[in-house]
């Protein structure tokens, strides 16, 4: 900071003012006090979900996901793979193997399956300290608690992925239809599925419907394993 001041000591008044403004702007960007609403930093997202959230997973937002645990895990996976920490609060039944297959790094995953009456404190601590917090559907959170958590997330720049409806969520992803492929009448296995997701933004007016394919596995190799399973069964 000192060096530029020395340089401009001899300059005119206008030059010194410009230099001071420049220094101030540099400090502001470094500390992050002035942030445009549009250019919030984003968390990385898996490629398959890009049609769902073209603007990316913005830090400091609340995303409510209705009807699919897989979709929640997939949303958190991109960030977790890039080194973010994730916490899952109040979801005792979450499939850990599914989470790992989606790309969540289990070494950076913290589970609080039964926060009980201290759901607010646990969720608050996670929002403070973790980049992504997944909240289960049956947490003891009042609307006021939810507003506070959302404010805290905005302040700390972390993302809340809530299962079930959340009043005032920045984004609501509701799974309207999911179609599995790969099963027959006694043969095959679950292979891939299409989710039709209704995306409602707090700012955007119209509801957008997007179809994404989760668990897509192309290629004949998979087909071969599928037939092998069928043989074993027979």
């Amino acid at each position: 900071m000192l060096k530029p001041q020395h340089d401009v000591v001899g300059g005119s008044r206008a030059e010194r003012l410009a230099a001071a403004r420049l220094a101030l702007a540099a400090v502001e960007t470094r500390v992050g006090t002035t942030r445009e609403a549009g250019d919030r930093p984003r968390l990385p997202l898996t490629e398959t979900l890009e049609p769902l959230l073209p603007e990316g997973l913005q830090r400091g937002t609340v995303v409510s996901v209705e009807g699919s645990t897989s979709l929640m895990l997939a949303l958190a996976a991109g960030a977790s793979r890039e080194g973010s920490w994730a916490a899952i609060v109040g979801m005792p039944a979450v499939g850990i193997v599914a989470a790992a297959r989606r790309g969540i790094d289990l070494a950076r995953l913290v589970l609080v399956p039964h926060p009980g009456t201290q759901a607010v404190e646990a969720a608050g601590a996670c929002v403070d300290g973790m980049d992504v917090t997944l909240l289960g559907p049956r947490l003891a959170l009042s609307d006021q608690d939810r507003r506070r958590l959302a404010a805290r997330a905005r302040e700390r720049g972390s993302v809340i992925l809530a299962s079930g409806p959340w009043a005032g969520a920045h984004l609501t992803l509701a799974v309207e239809r999911s179609a599995w492929r790969g099963l027959g009448a006694g043969d095959g296995r679950l292979r891939e599925r299409d989710l039709t997701v209704a995306v409602t933004g707090r700012r955007s007016g119209a509801v957008r419907r997007v179809r994404v394919t989760l668990d897509a596995d192309a290629t004949g190799m998979r087909v071969a394993t599928g037939s092998r399973v069928a043989e074993e069964v027979a």
Partner: peptide, 15 residues
């Protein structure tokens, strides 16, 4: 969280 909820309430998972 461990001091808040007790040590057994916060889990680490592995495959």
């Amino acid at each position: 969280m461990q001091s808040l909820l007790g040590p057994d309430a916060v889990l680490a998972v592995r495959e």
